[in-house]
């Protein structure tokens, strides 16, 4: 079986935000929000992007959307109509415009991502109108189709966002993202503001849409359990860098990076018998303004040795498709979730 086409290939992507100080806005340093991230997203599949707060997940998503211009690196995008692939990192806004409809985003905050002054009908029609896809009766038909796709009712069309709960708003958000039938959706923590029971609804809806329409997701989350449920492959980030990039199954069976192991063991579990198997890391995640030398994880790593503080480990393939940035990936025998039997 041949693998699906690569839609998006991110290569060594970096984004350093300058820090300005003083009256003359002198640049005194950089927030290395994203500092070398590479991955591939294939048509119709889901790639999970996991990491702790501030590790640069949103920044990666926004660079793909063209909201931030990368400091360096490439975002190769393959338009679905067979044109040659384009580097979104190096493109003028004018050229970006026709490509936008192929890549859409679902935001984290259901209360900020819908314009409070527009009705649901207007919100859903907006992308269609802007891109001159449909007009008049056809527009109305498309809007109705979208509303049904995400499981809302037609009476909701005339309402304003304030009349909806968080979960319903997220449905509207998803409908808006689907309006142009994109081939990639960047979902930035779409469920982290929701209750678990509502989260399950949104997860089911997203899976359903993927099965029906075949869209590819870049699923950004800090919830390993959710990512596992969703994704075929997973990228784990730590302070702007990829520490591990692997298909879900081998990753959870046998993680190769100590950070992955710690993260898996820290996921709170509803099985009381699991308590006590935790790897409690010391300290806080590293500061992206001033990341540690060598391996960024070494100050918190249980297995760190001298060379970790000086030499930065490259992202190496330890098994087919399983990439790890750790000097001792081959030596360490780490316990994955499956062995722990934890909640994930």
């Amino acid at each position: 079986m041949s693998e699906a086409q690569v839609l998006l290939e991110v290569k060594d992507l970096k984004k350093h935000f300058p820090i300005h100080r003083g009256v003359f806005k002198k640049v005194v340093g950089h927030v290395k929000a994203v500092d070398g991230v590479s991955f591939r997203l294939r048509a119709g599949e889901t790639l999970g992007l996991v990491g702790e707060s501030g590790c640069g997940k949103t920044t990666v998503g926004r660079m793909i959307m063209g909201a931030y211009r990368p400091t360096s690196g490439n975002v190769w995008f393959q338009p679905p109509n067979g044109q040659p692939r384009i580097d979104l990192a190096d493109i003028r806004p004018k050229q970006m415009k026709p490509l936008r409809r192929h890549i859409q985003m679902v935001f984290q905050d259901p209360f900020a991502s819908l314009n409070p002054r527009m009705t649901v009908r207007q919100i859903l029609a907006e992308p269609l109108v802007v891109n001159k896809v449909a007009k008049g009766r056809e527009l109305e038909a498309r809007v109705r189709e979208l509303v049904e796709l995400v499981g809302l009712k037609l009476i909701h069309l005339n309402r304003y966002p304030h009349a909806f709960s968080g979960g319903q708003r997220q449905r509207i958000s998803i409908a808006r993202a689907m309006a142009l039938y994109p081939c990639v959706i960047v979902a930035d923590e779409p469920t982290s503001a929701l209750d678990v029971s509502v989260q399950a609804q949104i997860v089911n809806l997203s899976l359903e849409i993927q099965d029906k329409i075949g869209v590819a997701y870049l699923f950004i989350s800090h919830d390993l359990g959710l990512v596992r449920h969703f994704s075929k492959k997973i990228v784990l980030m730590y302070v702007g860098r990829v520490v591990e990039y692997a298909p879900a199954e081998p990753l959870f069976a046998r993680p190769r990076h100590p950070y992955t192991e710690a993260l898996m063991s820290n996921v709170p579990s509803t099985r009381p018998e699991m308590v006590g198997h935790k790897i409690i890391l010391e300290g806080d995640p590293a500061d992206p303004i001033n990341p540690p030398s060598g391996c960024p994880f070494h100050p918190r790593c249980l297995y760190a040795e001298e060379m970790c503080a000086t030499v930065e480990p490259p992202l190496m393939e330890v098994e087919p498709e399983h990439l790890v940035a750790c000097h001792f990936a081959d030596v360490l025998n780490l316990t994955g979730c499956d062995a722990l039997g934890c909640a994930v």
């Binding site: 959307m65 936008r100 985003m105 314009n115 802007v130 891109n131």
Partner: peptide, 16 residues
């Protein structure tokens, strides 16, 4: 604001 970003991502121009 995210809803403004969303409009941008949908392809809306400055005036809109």
């Amino acid at each position: 604001e995210e809803f403004v970003l969303a409009a941008r991502f949908a392809g809306a121009g400055h005036a809109r």
